[in-house]
Computed example of a mutant assay.
Amino acid sequence: MSSTLRRRLAAVCCAVGVAGAMVAAAPTAGAATTSDFRGVNWADPRDNYASDAVVPSGLSTTDSYATTFAKASAIIGQFRAKVGANTVRLPVNPTSVNGPFWQSYTAAVDAATAKGFKVILGYWESPTAKDGRIDDQSTFNAMWQRITTRFAFYPNVYFEPMNEPFGYSSQEWTGIATSWLSTYWYVPRSRVVVDGTGYADDVKSVCADDRLAGTHLALHFYGFWHSTWTDPQQWLADFDQRLGTCSSRTILDEFGASMTTGLNYNGPINGSNEIAYLQTVTNRLRELHMGSVYWPGLRTGDTYSLTELHGSGTVLSLSVTNASGADLLARAWGR
């Protein structure tokens, strides 16, 4: 378990009980859904919290645009071939965007969109404070100005103003998100992904704010939050309570479980909270026709990583770390 997973566990575990759970109704035929987001996170080995440039596994700050494009093309192609993804979520921070790495990092976005992928660009704070708040407003603004100037008119690029804004109250966070929409007014709202409150673990208040109408919402939901739960009904009630009635706008853009420890997610639960969790959440995503982005599709050294990177230079390939986990992800995506 990474340090960030342990941090989240301490802050989130048991924060939301199952009492009074609100069961979200499955969408009716023809209703709006987010089912066209079938994605994976491509993360820095450090879990995307970096003071320097954030660099997804396999890339390098020393690579040229052409080399980055070639590497990203290979990895993105493998995300599609090996797990059936059509969306990738990439991290950004002020150093990676406002500094020299941006000249080559843009190639990862270009490579993904060239293959028809949707790309979600999300801001991660640095590890210095890790307080769930924007580190520096001026560099944050400069970062988003540069990102949106480059990609606002790319129809497959989406913008997530901040990952897990747990340092803000719900009122503060909806105000910040509203200000972001006003500042970057030229970005279509349908291509903005607003995190839920806390560790993006509840979307009801952002969903209810009319000022954020037309945006997508991001929910995060992890099995380690309740390490003793082996009853699928507990997981179902907890998930639905966090989602409320907002499934038509929401993307579950972080969820995951151990993939390199040999668990059989197609088998019986046998006292495993992770199997109970992943079976339940993927089934619920399928029922709701709700989009999702697995954490992580690729992150070197992470036991949750769905794939492992092989090769060198620009000759790169991926192998699936857990076939049963990949099966459940495919089920969540309706296949």
Rank of each mutant, 00 (worst) to 15 (best):
D231K: 11
N264V: 01
R249N: 10
R211P: 02
I269S: 04
Y277W: 11
H216L: 15
L219K: 13
E254L: 02
C246G: 07
G262S: 08
N266Q: 12
F255A: 09
F221E: 09
S247R: 10
S272L: 06
Y222D: 00
N266G: 14
E254R: 05
D201L: 04
L263E: 01
E254Y: 02
H226P: 00
C246P: 02
L278I: 11
N266W: 03
D231H: 06
E274C: 02
S227P: 04
L263S: 07
W235F: 03
F239S: 05
G214P: 01
T230W: 09
A218Q: 05
M259E: 10
W229G: 04
D201S: 13
C246L: 11
Q241M: 02
F221W: 13
G262H: 03
T228M: 08
L236K: 12
T250M: 06
R211V: 02
F221M: 12
H220F: 06
T261C: 05
W225M: 14
S248H: 13
D253Y: 02
T250H: 06
A257E: 10
T250S: 11
S272H: 08
G223R: 02
D253L: 01
Q234N: 15
G223E: 05
Y222T: 00
H226E: 15
T245F: 07
S247F: 07
G223L: 00
T215C: 14
D238A: 07
M259G: 14
V203I: 13
K204L: 00
A237T: 04
G256E: 05
T250I: 13
G271F: 09
W229C: 03
L236G: 08
Y265G: 10
G262A: 09
F221A: 02
R242M: 12
A213N: 14
I269Y: 04
C246E: 13
A276G: 07
N270G: 03
Q234K: 14
D253G: 10
L243I: 14
F255C: 10
G244K: 00
V203E: 10
L236V: 04
M259F: 04
D253K: 04
K204V: 09
T228V: 12
K204G: 00
D202W: 08
I275D: 10
R211H: 09
I269R: 06
L212S: 07
